[in-house]
Write a protein that binds this DNA or RNA. Structure first.
Lengths: 343, 343
DNA sequence: CTGAAAGCGCTAACAG
DNA sequence: CTGTTAGCGCTTTCAG
């Protein structure tokens, strides 16, 4: 690794001069000398050591991302958004993946062990002098264990901390569900079946709230038997659709695309055609949903935008530009495709 | 940020002693003094500055990961595998995402622009003193633009360089396709339809090779009209299945799960039941495939393992334990589920 | 057992 | 316009 010192030696100037020239300081050296320095640096493929620079400047231009689990479908897109924003603003990222799914066999809850792991990661990131940290949840919920000692701006993506001690960015589940419901109502649907996730889930609760609000807004009653609870998997959509179809619903609102795909299956077996005989809405806009036949109407969730926004908040806080906000809900986009028709 | 100097001042010893005590050097100080130092450090939440340490030790214990696109389905799992192995071995990762999909509107090819971007990233990583770099492709193929100046071990995941200049880890497409084909043949299937990806795709070519080899191995001829080409999307599976079913195939081997899901649709519309009336195999083991009804037989590709293996090779090279290998093909696992039955 | 001194690669402040 | 000096936080001889 060729250093600044080496170049200084070869060009008979001080390291300071080399540094100044290479950093484009005006008038750091005479034109001839300056050219000599840059040429030599070029030829030797000189590359500044960022460790040394950061140490001396007391600034790393780096933020840390902690993912609860990078392999869960929403995480990469959020990370991508963070990365994008950071790149545009001269920041870099380091990544720590907690791997919660694999570590705890998919059924962990917020355990002390989890808390310990978080603290360890926080320590490590602090040691690496990150200037801010973004915590990416693997599913939306309130996080009750908070990091112990936070010395830099800390922002939650896709989850939020108890009592909103730190800012967080989520999306507007409730509004999106209400939008979908209103759209179905406008198309003349009255008997709308709802396939929720588990009753305890944040997403289930907020989306259901939006659904009920929209129904009430149109003076429609919600029949309890038309609201059923699955487990987010395709299988449960397939199974639960049977009961709803038996009850002659004209539309089904599935709280995710996976369960909606099970509805296609169930409908096909009964000789019902989605879009024609029954309308269907999903949620998530998984990359496969557009390819369904007919294409699935669904809700696009702004994952990339969540990432970008978190990064923006973090960088703003680093620059002390703005005080920390609270919880931010980004709007979703309702995508009407062929699986929905008027009654 | 409390430093070693601060602690030295408070405990009336030199920074060297503090450092030695905190790093557990035997006999660095008297027992009492040592305890005092550790206590103070604890209370002040002292945290070593890794930048400084790395600079002085000329060692970062960090490797870089370059993803072509983190949001493509295989990338997170590979990154996860790398991360896992590194964590187990005391290494950390920094991530750079090229975002090729978004940058080039999904239809980039290996352009000069791409090459430039790669060099920029390489430079940056080198500046950060990574000890090795893993390049994660977004789909399997030969990469023709190589990084210009590589100063550390460099390993390809899920793609491979021209002339195998650097080691690479992929999976055994050909063998897996042959395994699937043999399994179908053993179940008595003779008229097997194949839904490939685009003809030019590496995956299409190698899997087709495996398919043909297995057929030939059993003295079976491959009818050209039974080998059709899609675009990896569900739609094309739906469409192409029609032609194959018209030709009375008893089994369909779809080269990915997405297109296989289209086959379910087509079959359902014709009143055919997958598993009973027609057997179906996918490829990729996408997380949704198990939830299909009936569950889809498919091929699990060892993405996590690819990541782990790449990390292993990289760390071994860093420690100069082994010479660089060539291309490594990891075995896939055939998952037989309910979508396959004997004729 | 303990500490002074040197130095990793770089930049900022200041003096000539 | 140019160079000297000092120091970021840490570890590592090596001398006491």
């Amino acid at each position: 690794m060729v250093t600044i010192k080496e170049i200084a030696r070869l060009t008979n100037v001080s390291t300071a001069t080399v540094s100044n020239v290479l950093n484009g300081k005006p008038g750091a050296a005479g034109a001839a000398k300056a050219r000599e320095i840059t040429t030599i640096a070029e030829n030797l493929h000189y590359m500044p050591n960022k460790l040394a620079r950061s140490l001396q400047q007391q600034k790393t231009n780096t933020i840390g991302i902690i993912t609860e689990d990078l392999t869960v479908f929403n995480a990469p897109e959020i990370v991508d958004g963070i990365d994008e924003y950071c790149e545009e603003n001269g920041y870099e990222i380091i990544l720590e993946n907690m791997r919660l799914f694999k570590r705890y066999n998919n059924d962990f809850t917020d355990t002390p062990k989890h808390h310990e792991l978080l603290d360890l990661i926080m320590k490590n990131m602090t040691a690496k002098q990150v200037e801010g940290i973004i915590y990416v949840g693997y599913h939306c919920r309130e996080i009750s264990y908070l990091p112990s000692r936070v010395q830099v701006p800390f922002v939650y993506a896709y989850c939020y901390p108890k009592e909103d001690i730190y800012p967080s960015v989520l999306y507007d589940d409730e509004g999106a569900a209400a939008d979908v419901t209103r759209l179905l109502i406008q198309k003349g649907h009255r008997r709308i079946g709802v396939i929720c996730g588990p009753a305890a889930s944040y997403h289930t609760k907020t989306r259901l709230k939006g659904f009920r609000a929209a129904m009430a807004g149109h003076g429609l009653k919600v029949k309890n038997s038309l609201v059923v609870y699955g487990d987010w998997e395709r299988q449960s959509g397939y199974r639960l659709a049977a009961g709803l179809l038996d009850q002659k619903v004209t539309a089904i609102f599935s709280f995710n695309d996976l369960m909606a795909s099970g509805v296609y299956e169930q409908a096909a077996e009964r000789g019902l055609r989605i879009g024609r005989d029954i309308s269907l809405f999903g949620f998530d806009n998984r990359d496969t949903s557009e390819g369904y036949v007919p294409s699935l109407s669904t809700v696009h969730v702004p994952l990339n935008e969540i990432g970008r926004r978190c990064a923006e908040i973090t960088l703003n806080q680093i620059k002390r530009r703005r005080p920390a906000g609270k919880r931010i809900y980004l709007p979703c986009t309702v995508l009407e495709r062929q699986s929905v028709e008027p009654v």
